[in-house]
Design a protein around this nucleic acid. Structure first.
Length: 275
DNA sequence: AAGTATAGCAACCGCTGTCCA
DNA sequence: CTGGACAGCGGTTGCTATACT
């Protein structure tokens, strides 16, 4: 009856992925594409369950992923969409190209939630938490209005047309609250907003946090980020050329390959196995 | 400089809907 | 039709880096 179990979970490795495992998974998916995840670990020579492989790929290794903090506009989108959808992170992520549900969920829990609370807004209902908080909210709003009078609002950071259209579809009762949220993101002093592709580096698969061998994990001052390398860019270029049928949605088109190679994938730590 | 607290994020866990034998 | 496996999703945990005392 039914299908066979995806894995017996006996002898399977857990915890952070090593660079070697990443390499195996990437190479396998480049060669075979995304088929059934159940078969991936076995065929790729990984002691992981298919679920883990899928997660690693979708959240970390996919070449079309953006890196770095969410932009101001992306945060606004997340807040907008969350007010409509709630914690439907995958749905929200589908409106933000290059972002994963896990990433958005983490960002919500660690950044946006705090900002909303700080502004006296319930992150779940998107409404003022209490009369006291409401006063704070109104005070903040007045402050924003006075600021806007002093300096005319700059044009929004050129969102995609699709996203613009989506924005038009969003009908939010508490419009003022939303405006406050967006303004608040722009003006919070303790919040550093970084534009996409800004120089934030890329988490390195072989960084100290994910390195399997403790002896090699002397965490240097480079922390968990690294930036290299020409070889990674060349490898990816080769892979794109070699497997044009593979899903390279945002890479092969629109000239984004060069941009990715230059700005993002340079941080990938492809291991050249010389052993 | 050392110890402790906090923040951030990758990965796991467990649930749910869908598909298949 | 039924039972079980799969893929996907959201919640949670645990580790690491950073900030603070």
């Amino acid at each position: 009856m039914g299908r066979q179990p995806c894995c017996d979970k006996v002898g399977l490795k857990k915890g952070p992925w090593t660079a070697e495992e990443d390499k195996k998974l990437i190479n396998f998916l480049h060669t075979n594409g995304q088929c059934c995840w159940r078969a991936v670990p076995k065929l790729a020579g990984l002691l992981r369950c298919g679920k883990s492989c899928r997660l690693r790929w979708t959240n970390y290794l996919r070449p079309d992923l953006k890196r770095g903090l969410l932009s101001e506009y992306e945060e606004k989108m997340v807040v907008d969409l969350h007010s409509q959808m709630g914690n439907r992170w995958s749905k929200i992520a589908s409106h933000l190209p290059g972002r994963t549900d896990n990433e958005i969920k983490n960002h919500w829990n660690t950044h946006i939630k705090k900002k909303l609370k700080k502004m006296g807004i319930d992150p779940q209902t998107h409404k003022p938490i209490s009369p006291l908080s409401n006063d704070a909210h109104l005070a903040h709003q007045n402050d924003q209005k006075s600021r806007q009078q002093q300096s005319p609002p700059s044009p929004s950071p050129s969102p995609s047309r699709a996203l613009e259209e989506h924005d038009k579809e969003i009908v939010i009762d508490e419009t003022d609250v939303m405006n406050l949220l967006v303004d608040g993101f722009c003006t919070e002093e303790d919040v550093s907003l970084i534009e996409p592709l800004q120089d934030v580096g890329v988490p390195c698969a072989s960084s100290s946090s994910t390195t399997s061998t403790p002896s090699s994990s002397t965490p240097s001052s480079s922390s968990s980020f690294c930036s290299h390398s020409e070889s990674a860019a060349n490898l990816l270029q080769d892979l794109v050329n070699e497997f044009p049928e593979f899903e390279w949605p945002n890479i092969c088109e629109n000239g984004l390959l060069d941009e990715l190679l230059e700005d993002e994938l340079g941080g990938w730590d492809f291991i050249i196995d010389n052993s």
